[in-house]
Nucleic acid binder design. Structure first.
Lengths: 109, 109
DNA sequence: AATTTGCGAAACCAAATAGTTGCATATATA
DNA sequence: TATATATGCAACTATTTGGTTTCGCAAATT
């Protein structure tokens, strides 16, 4: 079953792969060198990441370079946005409350 | 096995629960009213979310109110930060390049 | 041409997962 | 006191998952 982006990043190995290729495209073997699992396991993860369009492939001869689709990562950011707005709202409310309390304390003196 | 926050939000039902209780604390039965699964299934999801400290419980008699721990959500934001920095860097680089091209075109006329 | 390297896919397996059913306990209500 | 409600947990089941092993194919090297 095809997975969504949240299911894709649920696995620690896949998150590590994403962080690895975020800066520079890498081949499956190069990626696998950073892990203690088999190259085929890494290949499997890359397929999952490719399926949900988190990474893209660029074939050069027999070598395939995988790179991160930053645009797709924004979908996670978008989902987080709703919570960011809430904690910013609460922060502002707290800030307002502190200001009010400070003002009240000042008027008492 | 205890799950991390990324594994917690991998499930669509749990993401929906998180969005639901983000604004207002709710009881398991109230939450379950929004889904087509059993109350026990929802209860299971709540346990997973509680275990990785994404939600907190507040018992009032026989009713338990679940609310979102916004602070914990920032862990996802923190992980996304590394990619946000990259796409902002690339955006700035693109912006610089566009400015340079515009300047060159201006000098040609 | 023969061999090596890069790589994905199939088959397998053990472990994990998500939902259901049934049950038990605590609290609220009649 | 008896009944209803809220809720979590255990057991069960089917499905999904992650890693390994083996194999096959294409490209690069010898």
């Amino acid at each position: 079953m095809r997975r969504d982006i949240f299911q894709a990043i649920a696995d620690p190995t896949r998150r590590a792969i994403i962080s690895l290729i975020a800066l520079q495209a890498m081949t499956p073997n190069a990626i696998a060198d950073n892990f203690h699992t088999t190259r085929q396991a890494v290949s499997k993860h890359l397929r999952i990441l490719t399926e949900c369009e988190l990474v893209k492939q660029e074939q050069q001869g027999r070598e395939i370079y995988y790179s991160l689709e930053l645009e797709k990562m924004k979908e996670i950011d978008k989902w987080i946005e709703q919570f960011r707005r809430i904690w910013e709202t609460r922060f502002n409310q707290l800030d307002d409350l502190l200001s009010t309390l400070k003002k009240q304390k000042k008027d008492e003196n």
